[in-house]
Computed example of a mutant assay.
Amino acid sequence: MNYLGAYLGCLLISAVAQASLVSNSNDSLVLLTKTLDAIEFALNFFHQEHPNLNLDAVIGTRMVEGQFKVLLRKLKAHPSQNAQISAPMVSRIERLQRIAGLVSDEALPYIATFTPKYYNEIGPIIQEGFWEMAYPSRDFDPDVPVWRYEEGESLMEQRSDDCLAEFFGTGKKSKEHCKISDDCWDFMTSPGYNSYSLSHQIFYFEIGRQFGCYSQMLVKNVRNHQKPIKDLQEQFCKNMLNEAIVIAKNGFPQRKQDLFMEQAALCGILGYREFFTSDWLEPILSWQDEVFGCYRGELVFESEVKLRDGVRSRRKREERPLDHGCLCHRTTVALAALGQYVRYITEYLQLLSSPAL
């Protein structure tokens, strides 16, 4: 795979192993431009559709806004490493960060009006600044175990949402922030999940920590004699990567594209750069509608989503079809994933500019 975010110091140690990297800065700049074009196109589509966006759509636009703020701080903190990244390119990232924030702000009153219960329960995750997470880039420990991949979901989305509400004090049982039940902790940190169930676990860790519940999470973690939270996140993302590789090897089936992009978005935020390759970026770019800027695909109905035990699982965050056959959730996970690609390509270009190399 072409590791866009791999540190160039590794090239000096293992030139052969890294030979599949994008060959030069020009190729990387072309990919960066194409990725920013795709983000701008999708944001413009969401801007036009903002009265029709659901809460999940704004998670994606807030991710772009927050992650671009983090990226811009890094770019401005190390100007000597920005020789490969022009001032107009930095200005463009700033502009897209502002547009992502504008789209989010525009959609909020509609979401609060049309889905008030859902908004009140987990609305904090779509407020400005929530997704300004700054995890360092890293590679997976090769010794992290990967469990056997198994089709089917392990959890119902409503239960996942109920557990998120415990962080915010908006659940049925308690109005106290960060009051985590044993049931939720056990359910949301158990190994062996795949697909969206696994991505919900990563989501759970990220949201709990960002909202300020880390000390309570740590107490649960220690009392249950689990691996450290950082190690749990790494294991979950390593298994996500394994599933992403399976999806890629199978030719990116349309019904898996949404999940594939969600995996890159969530684990990319945590710094795991092995999700980011030019071989995977090009297909994501190709899935974008050339006329409207959205992402289309086969609509998965609630009745088709099953748990591993065969029970039907109602997905509250099922796709919302928009005009022209566009899909709300698929477009927002594409935005979130492409935002992470911008991070890793610019990181790669910064390292190309490092005077030590």
Rank of each mutant, 00 (worst) to 15 (best):
F252R: 14
S86L: 12
L55K: 02
M1L: 00
E234V: 00
I126D: 03
V333I: 08
K256F: 07
K175T: 12
S160C: 02
Y341P: 03
A134E: 15
P51K: 04
D186S: 13
G293H: 10
T170D: 02
Y119L: 03
T331A: 02
T331H: 02
Q48V: 11
S278A: 15
P88D: 13
D289V: 05
R317V: 02
K238S: 12
H329S: 11
Y149S: 02
I229C: 04
N239M: 10
K230A: 15
K238Y: 12
G171V: 01
Y7L: 08
A356W: 12
D279K: 14
Q48Y: 05
N44E: 15
K172N: 04
R273M: 11
G208D: 05
Y118N: 06
R317S: 10
C328A: 12
L4M: 15
M240K: 00
K256M: 14
L322R: 07
L232E: 08
F167L: 02
S199V: 12
Q127F: 02
M1A: 06
Y214R: 13
N2P: 13
K238R: 15
S28G: 00
Q263L: 09
A336H: 00
G101K: 12
G9H: 10
I247N: 00
Y214L: 14
P116T: 10
Y344L: 08
M89P: 04
S190L: 04
N221V: 02
D289A: 04
L43D: 06
S28I: 00
C267Y: 06
F187A: 07
A87F: 07
Q235W: 00
Y3V: 02
H78I: 06
F292S: 08
Q201D: 03
E65M: 06
Y348K: 12
A112F: 08
F211M: 13
R312P: 00
S190K: 15
N221Y: 05
T113R: 10
N54T: 15
T115S: 13
L43M: 11
Q340A: 03
R320F: 01
Y135K: 13
F168N: 01
F211K: 13
L352P: 00
S91T: 14
Y193V: 01
L32P: 09
C163N: 04
R73F: 02
K117R: 05
M63R: 12
F205N: 05
T346G: 04
E65T: 07
S86A: 13
R315V: 15
A244T: 06
W185C: 01
I13S: 09
D183L: 12
